[in-house]
Nucleic acid binder design. Structure first.
Length: 423
RNA sequence: GGUGAGGUGGCUGAGUGGUCGAAAGCAGCGCUUUGCUAAAGCGCCGUAGUCCAAAAGGCUACCGAGGGUUCGAAUCCCUCCCUCACCGCCA
């Protein structure tokens, strides 16, 4: 959520930065400024009435204490109360309207984010490794089915399309990856492991920005009061919602595994083959909470931490920076890490690392005490470290052997318990 | 799920209709004094919104959340959430 004060005091700055996402935001800013003026006028009116009421009510108290007649004053206050009803209805409605617009307004991209319309405009920042030479690469679905790692038909039978059943070595590989990821981030990168509930309350979803705008993409349970987590970002970042955390602990760093549940409404037919786009997939998420001064440097280290996974697994990848038109709703800057998948003949996004600056912190009222003793909003960041299903795809497709087996990278062997997967 | 008790400022904890944003203590900050690693005295010390060009200052709201009663609510009533204790059930 953007700061209404910033919008009020520097509307042109906010407009120009939001316009890099979409020109339509300019009108929204004008609308919100108009509402802001009305809202403050209504609140001032209400406060004046409240002040009058309080003053008169105190006088009534004094008169009654002296056993004097207070009927006149009481009539006056009663009249004020009627006006107050109207004023407070107006103030509340304007305030709710303003909040609604603010909650649906995306974050401002940082000034140096490349301009662009969509994914085609995302510049490559760096690449690592080389594409392996594989003649007629098979895709992961063929590989996994022939090795008996997954059972798509039964997955569909029990849950419908977009769900996976892993079996035998296939399930073990998933679990091995999970432990490898968590161990790497906690032992080598200094993150604290955290295990959270997989369902969260509505206000958490608002806090990290999934709601109110993207409700149709989420799985609601319990009549809409609770939601299945679409990413561990939601429960983990919200651990400190409504808190004033100590800056002495900055950067706070958490690594968490959760399954991720996404309806993927509107993306039917896109990248739907195999394990690439699922309604449920496993992911290890990295979350950082820090000061505004630290957040850009922390984004670099968080991205490097996620990259380290692919390096250890010997996978070729590239890092891109998302252009203004392709950035996520709440982000001020995002790097995507894309791993090469020979069977797809394309790169697959396995991590998205974002600096949200104070956008989420303001929504969830997450603050720290500044050196001057004033409360300031924290900056929050998160990134996948990494998504499991797509990493799984990349492993199978990159390490497929001519004899039909799949090799296991050395770093993963202690976790998997073997150096290859064969029938 | 049942019964009972309770949710007040960073913490502990008073306060059952008006002078209460809220006693007191602890913690924190500042000053003074004595001095050996501490003590005493004094003062300050919640959050947010809003008014003013701004500062100073004013006003408003907030005692778990939301509604109601009343001229006036931390205090009375209703609903919900949460915590604790015991009972029941249970991986």
């Amino acid at each position: 959520m953007l700061d209404i004060r910033l919008i009020r005091e520097q509307p042109d700055l906010v407009k120009s930065r939001l316009a890099t996402r979409s020109p339509a935001h300019v009108e929204t800013i004008d609308a919100i400024l108009a509402i802001d003026i009305d809202r403050r006028a209504a609140e001032t009116r209400l406060q004046t009435l409240q002040s009058d009421r309080n003053r008169l009510s105190k006088e009534i108290g004094k008169l009654r204490a002296q056993k004097l007649d207070s009927a006149d004053l009481e009539a006056q206050v009663k009249k004020i109360a009627e006006e107050m009803d109207q004023a407070s209805t107006e103030a509340e409605s304007l305030s709710a309207k303003q909040r609604e617009i603010l909650l649906n307004l995306p974050n401002m991209p940082q000034a140096d984010i490349p301009m662009g319309r969509d994914a085609a405009d995302n510049p490559v920042v760096r690449t690592h490794g080389e594409k392996p030479v594989i003649a007629n690469p098979k895709d992961h679905v063929v590989l996994a089915e022939s090795l008996g790692l997954i059972d798509p038909d039964r997955a569909t039978k029990i849950s419908g399309s977009g769900f996976a059943v892993y079996i035998g070595q296939g399930a073990r590989l998933e679990r091995a990856l999970l432990n490898f990821l968590i161990d790497t981030h906690t032992r080598e990168h200094g993150y604290t492991e955290v295990s959270t509930p997989f369902v969260v309350r509505r206000e958490c979803m608002v806090g990290t920005g999934q709601l109110p705008k993207f409700e149709e993409d989420m799985y609601g349970v319990d009549g809409g009061g609770l939601f299945l987590v679409p990413t561990a970002e939601v429960p983990v970042t919200n651990l400190h919602r409504e808190e004033i955390v100590s800056a002495a602990n900055f950067p706070i760093q958490y690594a968490a595994y959760t399954p991720c549940f996404r309806r993927e409404a509107g993306s039917a037919g896109r990248e739907t083959r195999g394990l690439i786009r699922m309604h449920q997939f496993d992911k290890v998420e990295l979350v950082k909470i820090c000061s505004p001064e630290q957040s850009n440097a922390e984004l670099e280290s968080l991205t490097a931490n996620a990259e380290r996974i692919l390096q250890k697994l010997g996978l070729h990848y590239r890092v891109i920076v998302l252009c203004t038109g392709d950035m996520g709703f709440g982000s001020a800057k995002t790097y995507d890490i894309e791993v090469w998948a020979p069977g797809q003949n394309s790169y697959l996004e396995v991590s998205s690392c974002s600096n949200f600056e104070d956008y989420q912190a303001r929504r969830m009222n997450l603050r720290f005490k500044g050196e001057d003793g004033k409360n300031r909003y924290c900056h929050t960041l998160n990134g996948s470290g990494t998504a499991l299903a797509r990493l799984y795809v990349a492993l199978l497709e990159n390490y497929q052997q001519p004899d039909g087996t799949v090799g296991i990278p050395e770093a993963l062997q202690p976790y998997f318990g073997a150096d290859k997967i064969s029938k």
